[in-house]
Design a protein around this nucleic acid. Structure first.
Length: 971
RNA sequence: GCGCAAGUGGCGGAACUGGCAGACGCGCCAGGUUUAGGUCCUGGUGCCUUCGGGUGUGCGGGUUCGAGUCCCGCCUUGCGCACCA
């Protein structure tokens, strides 16, 4: 233990930190005033002349294991940014709540045999303690929790808004686009008044229809629908999952269980109606390109055409519809391929044997087409997607024995079944154009099918490959239309026009995005605010009867199955509570109290996190999810679009800064945008995007160690040894181990908790260390011991203000000397810029330099310099800054103190060092006046003896960049 | 396979529009304070060197008076997508 009584140790840091956290809380310094709503404080809002700022973190999920040092990285960064902006005079809203419904909490509860509410609340308490100890400047009044009925009442309310809305693709929008959600009541009115024709034109009006018939019509238009669909059934979790929750390997995102395709009736949200806007509106937000690309890929929009190929053998056959992005290549379609599951396959297979002239390669060795197709389908069905991928790109298929007619050339084309065609995309059938498609080329060469080039490849193109680029069309004419000579874009346009004219096809857009499967057969989630009547018709629970509370069932354990039992059936825990399921209710529709059956599914985990940032704005509002004035103030569109937005793009509004990992790119970020847009369309919000600026942070990776068997050993027990050449080696219990870097956690046995850091160094040092590691967007390795560097910085800062021996103030009311003033003001200018751009690592470097410069003064530290340094350090290390600020005589917290401003006069130098190069190599340095002329500098440089010595053969030219550089080029 | 990032000392990382490579920190070395040091302070620290200097930002070319930075071709690592018609 140190004998120095007033040293800034971890122990002292801890006392200071807890004391200031208590003070901040008592004084409510982080409470941001709202313009309206239950906390309306317009005067408080008006005091902030610097405007307003909304800073957001990823909604944390309280796990049973507590935090590790990787978790707070983003929270610290947003806190530093928020604190900096408060010191610029802005009204800053920064808070944190808890996303606490969902699978992990439920699984943890099941494992420990406790009720999920109990374990979840305990986990929240642990996490809240760990985060509070970090000194985050959050508005404590706004810490919402998704599991509270006051919160999920609004989650259910939003569900009903979406349920009671339909998408009118023709309705104009305020932003100039077309298509928006409208209340279902307006659709009813259109049907009733006759302005919109009813789907079944049997002469009856809306009022003539039975309530079942009306419900069927409306339900088919709602943005939430119950549909019979192919879903992802996960027996290991006992629930169905959304596409976004299934990994590329066909397993569950949570728990890594196998997922099977099943036909089931389920709730889906019609996110596909928003596919275009979700893709297009990415232009207006400032997000990393990587994340935008991931969303665009997921939405997977492609433009092309649907084309129908008649089936020649049968006039009554509907024909085979394909989707293609290259209708311009239609003349080169020499065969077709259908997915093995395609419903039309059977209709193409002729009875009896192979048609005349069938190539042996097409038959798969079978005696008849029927046999060949059956065998191929059986083989395809037996293989999982994973196995298909593992077999690489080899193309296989068999001839169906049937032919279709190329609609532009009239030529018969053989139809194959091939598993490189996927049932889930487009129409499940393709026209194959080997000359312009690599996959079709591979298939055509393997099965000896004809290849017709319809785009002229450039001369240097390999004749043995497909050509997918642009070029003039060739071989593309019939009696009525010719594409020859047109480029790809023009050819597409002309052929689509011709196809549409002939009724053979039409321009079309397809998407990879599928509707969002929204029901889960679990317990720990928001109940659906839906009641089914005796006809099975779903009714929304009236708003004044919300929330539909999650009942406290005795057995909340979900029915899970053997993870590989594909044939099992989902069984929601809520269905077991028959008292809850059956309910007497009056829907206020004039039909009085009737008996209903509740929906026993619960919402997915994403529901609560889809809109939490809106509730932060007005968490106590009992009348609305957010007062419109509050939403407009915090999130409304700004006058200027974001940097880099294409011309003509306006600002969509939204959160000013959202920091989080990239792992939510296609889940949370897509779902939240969808809900936000629906609420925008329905007039509840002024912003059309939830997150104007998104910043993807890197991860913290910690060293993990494996022994000779490849097993992980406890990282905290590993000893490091430094060899003579400086390279480290590692041992565990005396045996050598290997170091690698990976995610922090139990599985790699490399857990480091923030609690460890608080005990060893204190929260301020921990914050400083995390921010100093490197750029926020990069992943970087953790090294607990290296945090001493940050601790030394704070100790030096402390010593610059407080005498370690006596505890007296070392700051003196003296002027700052000229040299120090220069350093000080340069630091201010640089740090301001760094903070504004989230460049915390470089800000720390600059502050360290200033701190070291003050240390080197030796004697008393001039007050103006010490105060400016403390204020600048405050966003990063707020507790020690507050303590020093107070010891320097200030009675109020520095949370709202003005950030130091640089004096521009002190940023310019009188003299600078000029580098003199010969042939690009530095040979001399000259101290010259900053305003020296080019000519004077050239003369000075050439006069230098060191330069003269190198110019024996004369000078060819001299490049002068006054005042910093001269480059002499010798002859 | 396609696409996007990124490769700088023993380590994490600095370097504005091409203009002093290695800021700041860890580690390491030396010295000081200390009975002691997993303390603190001071100085040093890319590599090679015959101490003049040479060389150096993944590799190979190029543009330029001048390249970590721009262009072309490769290599490696990470991430995303992966028969998307």
């Amino acid at each position: 233990m140190s004998e120095t009584p007033h040293r800034y140790t971890a122990e002292l840091a801890g006392r200071i930190e807890v004391a200031w956290q208590d003070r901040w809380e008592e004084q409510g310094v982080f409470r941001a005033p709202n313009p309206a709503g239950p906390w309306a404080d317009p005067e408080g809002v008006a005091e902030h002349e610097g405007g307003h700022l909304l800073v957001l973190d990823m909604f944390p999920y309280p796990s049973g294991a507590g935090l590790h040092v990787g978790h707070p990285l983003g929270y610290i960064a947003t806190d530093v940014y928020a604190r900096f902006n408060r010191m610029l005079g802005k009204n800053v809203l920064h808070c944190l709540g808890y996303d606490a419904f969902g699978l992990p909490a439920e699984q943890y509860a099941v494992q420990t045999g406790q009720h999920p509410r109990k374990t979840t609340e305990e986990n929240i308490a642990i996490m809240a303690r760990q985060l509070r100890r970090l000194g985050l400047g959050h508005d404590d009044r706004r810490a919402v929790r998704t599991i509270d009925p006051d919160y999920y009442r609004w989650t259910q309310w939003i569900f009903l808004q979406i349920f009671n809305a339909w998408y009118d693709a023709d309705a104009p929008r305020e932003d100039g686009g077309t298509g928006r959600a409208r209340p279902i009541a307006e659709l009813v009115e259109e049907y009733r008044s006759g302005t919109r024709p009813l789907p079944a034109e049997d002469g009856r009006g809306w009022d003539d229809l039975s309530h079942v018939e009306r419900a069927e019509i409306l339900d088919s238009r709602r943005l939430v629908q119950s549909v019979e669909a192919t879903v992802n059934w996960c027996p290991g979790l006992g629930t169905v999952l959304a596409n976004e929750e299934v990994t590329n390997e066909g397993r569950s995102d949570r728990g890594n269980f196998p997922v099977f395709k099943r036909r089931l009736r389920q709730w889906v949200m019609r996110i596909t109606e928003y596919a275009d806007r979700l893709a297009d509106d990415l232009d207006g937000v400032q997000w990393p390109e990587k994340v935008k690309t991931m969303q665009r890929n997921w939405i997977g929009r492609s433009q092309g055409a649907h084309v129908t190929f008649p089936v020649g053998t049968d006039a009554a056959h509907p024909g085979i519809e394909v989707f293609t992005t290259r209708p311009d290549t239609l003349f080169g379609a020499t065969f077709m391929a259908l997915a093995p599951e395609h419903p039309l396959v059977d209709s193409l297979v002729p009875e009896g044997g192979w048609p005349e002239g069938t190539d042996d390669a097409w038959t798969g060795g079978a005696a008849t087409p029927a046999e060949a197709v059956a065998a191929y389908r059986a083989q395809a069905a037996a293989r999982t997607d994973l196995e298909r991928q593992a077999e690489g790109k080899a193309k296989t298929g068999v001839f169906t024995g049937g032919f279709a007619l190329n609609p532009v050339s009239g030529a018969p084309v053989p139809v194959f079944v091939a598993d490189y065609v996927l049932m889930g995309y487009g129409t499940g059938a393709i026209m194959a154009v080997p000359a312009q498609d690599e996959r079709d080329w591979d298939f055509a060469t393997a099965y000896r099918l004809p290849i017709i080039r319809t785009v002229q490849p450039p001369e240097d193109h390999d004749e043995d490959t497909a050509y997918t680029g642009d070029g003039p069309a060739v071989n593309s004419a019939n009696d009525e239309v010719s594409l020859d000579g047109l480029d790809v874009a023009d050819a597409k346009e002309r052929i689509v026009a011709w196809l549409e004219d002939k009724g053979l096809g039409r321009g079309a857009v397809t998407y990879k995005l599928r509707d969002w499967l929204f029901a889960r057969q679990r317990y720990w989630g928001e109940p659906f605010p839906v009641l089914f009547d005796e006809d099975g018709i779903a009714h929304g629970v009236p708003e004044d009867q919300l929330p539909v509370e999650l009942p406290d069932v005795p057995d909340y354990t979900p029915k899970v199955y053997d993870p590989d039992d594909a044939d099992s059936e989902p069984e929601p825990p809520l269905a077991r509570d028959t008292d809850w399921v059956t309910v007497e209710a009056d829907l206020g529709d004039g039909r009085g109290t009737r008996t209903f059956r509740r929906d026993t599914n619960v919402m997915p985990q994403w529901a609560g996190s889809c809109w939490y940032y809106l509730r932060y704005l007005d968490p106590a509002n009992g009348q609305a999810l957010v007062d419109p004035e509050n939403e407009a103030y915090w999130m409304g569109p700004r006058p200027a679009p974001v940097a880099g937005a294409p011309a003509g793009t306006g600002d969509p509004g939204g959160v000013d800064l959202y920091v989080g990992g990239v792992e939510h790119a296609v889940l949370h970020l897509l779902y939240a945008r969808f809900w936000h847009k629906v609420l925008f369309d329905l007039g509840h919000l002024s912003s059309s995007e939830p997150f104007r600026t998104y910043f993807a942070q890197g991860y913290i990776q910690a060293p993990a160690f494996t022994d000779a068997r490849g097993q992980y050993v406890e990282a905290s027990e590993v000893e490091e040894h430094v060899g003579d050449d400086g390279t480290p080696s590692f041992t565990h219990a005396g045996a050598p181990v290997n170091r690698e870097f990976g995610k922090i956690g139990k599985s790699l046995k490399n857990m480091v908790s923030p609690d460890d850091m608080y005990a060893m160094y204190g929260a301020d040092t921990f914050r400083l260390y995390e921010m100093g590691l490197g750029p926020l967007e990069q992943s970087k390795p953790w090294d607990t011991r290296a945090a001493v560097g940050s601790q030394r910085f704070l100790q030096r800062l402390w010593r610059n203000v407080v005498d370690e021996e006596t505890g007296d103030l070392r700051v003196a009311d003296v002027d700052v000397d000229a040299e120090t003033a220069k350093v000080l003001h340069r630091t201010i200018a640089a740090v301001r810029e760094d903070y504004a751009g989230l460049g915390f690592n470089t800000a720390i470097a600059r502050l360290t330099e200033l701190n070291n410069a003050l240390t080197k003064l030796g004697g008393d530290v001039p007050r103006p310099a010490a105060e400016a340094l403390v204020l600048m350090v405050a966003p990063l290390a707020p507790h020690v800054a507050e303590e020093l600020w107070r010891r320097m005589g200030h009675e109020t917290s520095l949370v709202h103190a003005a950030f130091p401003e640089a004096d521009p006069a002190l940023l310019v130098d009188d003299t600078v060092t000029c580098v003199v190069q010969v042939g690009g190599k530095v040979r001399d340095r000259l101290e010259v006046p900053a305003d020296i002329t080019e000519d004077a500098l050239r003369e000075l440089a050439l006069a230098s003896p060191r330069i003269q010595a190198l110019l024996e053969n004369g000078v060819r030219t001299v490049v002068v960049r006054a005042p910093r550089l001269v480059n002499v080029v010798p002859a």
